[in-house]
Design a protein around this nucleic acid. Structure first.
Lengths: 250, 250
DNA sequence: GTCAATACTTTGTCATGACAAACTGACTTG
DNA sequence: CAAGTCAGTTTGTCATGACAAAGTATTGAC
């Protein structure tokens, strides 16, 4: 009866696939929205009809829609319907590493390992990682290039029982990729982002003038079981880098 | 049979309340976890038993638990159970204003309104707010103090149909509080955080030396319906302020 | 004793059915 | 004509039932 109601046409759901039905539906909807086949502001079919046409139950349809609502792509109003709002915003905040970001952005990352050793954790690091002071951690110092220019000076401490790495590993992969490969998936992190002026040696390494503004970021990451995986203290050239965040609030 | 299984004892659910049952259950669980009555690492009762004891259905119990999982307080593993992980981390990222943060932190905020006028939106601002260039916006320039010292120089542009404010309003309240009071609830925002050196006038206003490092933050915020509410471009004294973020990833 | 197969526990997914609450729009009434 | 009422639409909440998948513990064979 309403005219701006956009029916979601061809759907191929694979019931034998290990991918959950609700996720298949959500993915399909997301594609349609991103391709613009369902324009911003348009209402989508109501749950009940959509479920019937797709041949799935209403809870399954609801779950798919809910998934996209949480990502900020859809908005629902009781008695009104479900509308497309924001095709771009996907996830609230990415828990990814600089390396992944650069690869995704075609910025030709390169990593130079300046230092790699096992040391007893200092009090500050032990506190950040919830370890007893003196526990052995791997200390990593890296210089990250993008497009041939230095971009960031990165320091990390990782408990030895979490990960053992070689220089070659670090040169070829991002730290988070190595963590994930070792079976440690970061799930929760606390970050502090600040700024300060570069000291003389920092400026030299990063090819900046002394006193240039640097972005600082310290982060501690935990896995799903609450085990601390990584402490990082990084310096970025503010002239070349900034943090982008997408927030969404319930 | 397992020993670290913590039964959730006294529960009073109000079925006549307008507050959903799943939310009542979630709130109750959250209290127990925050009070430490269910310690970190402890397993909670399995869904089926918990549901039966509470006198609610399994989906309702699941939804309550899911709610806490998304907030990073619980972790579930199929075949294993549900564990408490991180009582502190609550919400992934807060969509709040600096003023709210300062009030919450007892830092005695004060706001000085430097400029307040209605102007046609520049191209850049119009783009950020998804307006047609030339649409009238309220332009606000504020200096925020904390503990008697200048902390941030804030510039905002707000579509005139969203909010009309007086100097007195701005001096006494945070911008987000005023927005919410006017019925505009920010739900989605994109932020860019960077750094640069202070120009001479900026340094003078913020009581810093020329060339001092400043944190920059630009943000655009939208409401649930996708209407742009606010564009902000802010400067923070890096020596006094940093951004804290809690991330969680699925 | 060690390793593999089996049983058990627990969460994950999905269906069906029902009623409540919020919003819209048309209709009725003063 | 204006305002309130009422029906229709759509999402929100909740229950019950069933099976699948993953992880753990036990058992049995060699």
């Amino acid at each position: 009866m309403t005219s701006d109601l956009t029916p979601v046409r061809p759907v191929h759901l694979d019931r034998s696939s290990p991918v959950p039905l609700y996720y298949q539906v959500a993915t399909r909807l997301q594609e349609l929205i991103e391709k613009g086949e369902i324009g911003v502001g348009a209402r989508i079919e109501n749950e009940v009809d959509l479920a019937e046409r797709l041949g799935v139950s209403r809870p399954t349809t609801r779950r798919a829609i809910q998934y996209l609502v949480e990502r900020g792509m859809l908005v629902r109003k009781r008695g009104v319907g479900t509308q497309v709002v924001h095709p771009k915003v996907r996830r609230p905040v990415e828990l990814s590493s600089l390396y992944d970001d650069l690869v995704a952005g075609d910025r030709a990352p390169r990593t130079e390992v300046l230092d790699l050793k096992v040391i007893p954790a200092s009090d500050a690091i032990a506190t950040s990682l919830s370890l007893t002071p003196g526990t052995e951690v791997t200390w990593i110092e890296r210089l990250r290039y993008a497009g041939g220019e230095p971009l960031a000076l990165m320091h990390n401490a990782i408990p030895v029982d979490v990960l053992t790495v070689t220089e070659a590993d670090l040169a070829a992969h991002g730290l988070y990729e190595l963590l994930r490969r070792a079976g440690h998936v970061p799930r929760i992190a606390t970050q502090v982002i600040g700024a300060r002026s570069a000291s003389a040696p920092e400026a030299r390494i990063l090819a900046e003038k002394r006193g240039a503004s640097l972005l600082t970021m310290t982060r501690t990451a935990w896995d799903a079981a609450g085990k601390a995986l990584e402490y990082g203290s990084h310096l970025y050239r503010a002239s070349r880098y900034s943090f982008e965040l997408n927030l969404s609030a319930g």
